[in-house]
Design a protein around this nucleic acid. Sequence first.
DNA 1: GCCAACGTTGGC
DNA 2: GCCAACGTTGGC
Length: 188
Amino acid sequence: MPAKKKTAKKTSKKTTKKKSAGPWDAAFAPRAPGEARYWLVKSEPEVFSFDDLLHKHNKTTHWNGIRNFAARNFMRDAMRVGDRVFYYHSGSDAPSIVGICEVVREAYPDDSAFDSASEGYDPKSDRSKPTWYMVDLRAVAQFTHPVTLAQIKERKDLKDMALLRIGRLSVSPVRPSEWAAITRMAEG
DNA sequence: GCCAACGTTGGC
DNA sequence: GCCAACGTTGGC
């Protein structure tokens, strides 16, 4: 019966052994009415650049191939239609945020995980209970002055950005203050 | 091409 | 459930 679950909990709570409420919890917290949130996605321009996105029909693509649980959780559990997303080019000469897109469709199963011919094939993912999800993103604006990783690292007020703190994560949250600072930097 | 920093896997 | 081995990402 459910009574059992409840009791054990209280005591173990005070030690805050739960990673002291992770710095990224805010990304999952309930939203105020009309509140939009901000994100960053990475892509190697050789594979799929912001320019490629601009040339897609409706400047829209599905963000598939994410095979990391933390990134998946941000996408599936926290990204909402209307959220704004920085587009980051990794692996290039000057890794940079090059533009902005927006979420136009919330998470739905990533079909490439079921396709044995696909690079993203995951035999452990089942159609009835998919492991991997994708969202649809539409390009909104290209930066005239891309904001480089080096620039971001120079700024004290950006040192806690998930981009810098969570290594190699392909989808990460951006705080409103960080969003504001970077869009200002992109104005040149 | 090197390597740090992670994440995942599998043996025990 | 621990942890070593292995794989991947991505800056430099």
